[in-house]
Design a protein around this nucleic acid. Structure first.
Lengths: 130, 130
DNA sequence: CGAAAAGGCATACACACGTAAGAGATTATG
DNA sequence: CATAATCTCTTACGTGTGTATGCCTTTTCG
């Protein structure tokens, strides 16, 4: 079904920036790095090239520089990544992870309320016909 | 706070088996590998040794072989791992991940019900004082 | 008893990763 | 225009990762 090689942590970090910018040059990405994340122009360049090689991005020349954009839908990549994660840490069971998130990771009052709302809504949309 | 080097995927796989067995020899782990996961005795041995070096397990000699057990609470490791994951993929926001899990990953009717129950329960325990 | 089995410890080895330097081309600037 | 700044492309390099081999010792079994 899929079969691009998996993204490493740093690659994911860079990919997310490109997704966010929609289309970006090496420099764009470099400048969008969060405060304090000091990494060389050349390094960013390497990551973008690798992301293209791995099939996650495509590039198009624009003047003397390259414009990178997503080749695979970000949501797709996220989906796969989460799935793999759940698989490896929770035996593929999503519920225990949700449970964990609610109990032990920062879900606040507000979030809980939103979550409840979401669940009620689901109830009405129930059995969404494809 | 923490500061063991992170676990790699394969290391996590092995660690989880040890946690599950509570205490395990190389051979125990080898035999607890899931169907189809063919990996050499020596390889398992290497992983266990690395897990010890990284500070996740300790070993105690028993006869001629070594018994490995958790040195850090599994829940702790899970917690850190999930946190890192949420950090890298969802900007540290747990809610979007929960949302994702509900919408796109296998949460079924049943799970949703359980989830709702859990939420109502939380309501009663509410505002747990630190 | 002597060979095979089972262990440990040390070492290996190819490929992935994070990070970048070097070389060469193009563009901008004092 | 000569020099500095930017870019790309290629190559590098230490460390991590997945998977094991080698060698040595202690058990076990035919």
């Amino acid at each position: 079904m899929n079969q691009r090689p998996a993204l490493s942590k740093a690659e994911m970090e860079i990919a997310r920036i490109v997704w966010d910018l929609q289309t970006a040059t090496v420099r764009d990405v470099l400048e969008s790095l969060p405060e304090g994340r000091e990494i060389d122009y050349k390094t960013v360049q390497t990551f973008l090239r690798r992301l293209e090689t791995k099939g996650y991005l495509t590039s198009k020349r624009s003047g003397r520089s390259l414009l990178y954009t997503a080749k695979v839908r970000p949501s797709q990549v996220i989906h796969e990544t989460v799935k793999d994660f759940v698989g490896r840490l929770f035996d593929g069971e999503a519920l225990p992870l949700v449970e964990h998130l609610i109990r032990e990771q920062g879900l606040k009052e507000d979030d809980l309320q939103q979550l409840k709302d979401m669940l009620s809504h689901l109830e009405s949309e129930q059995t969404i016909p494809e």
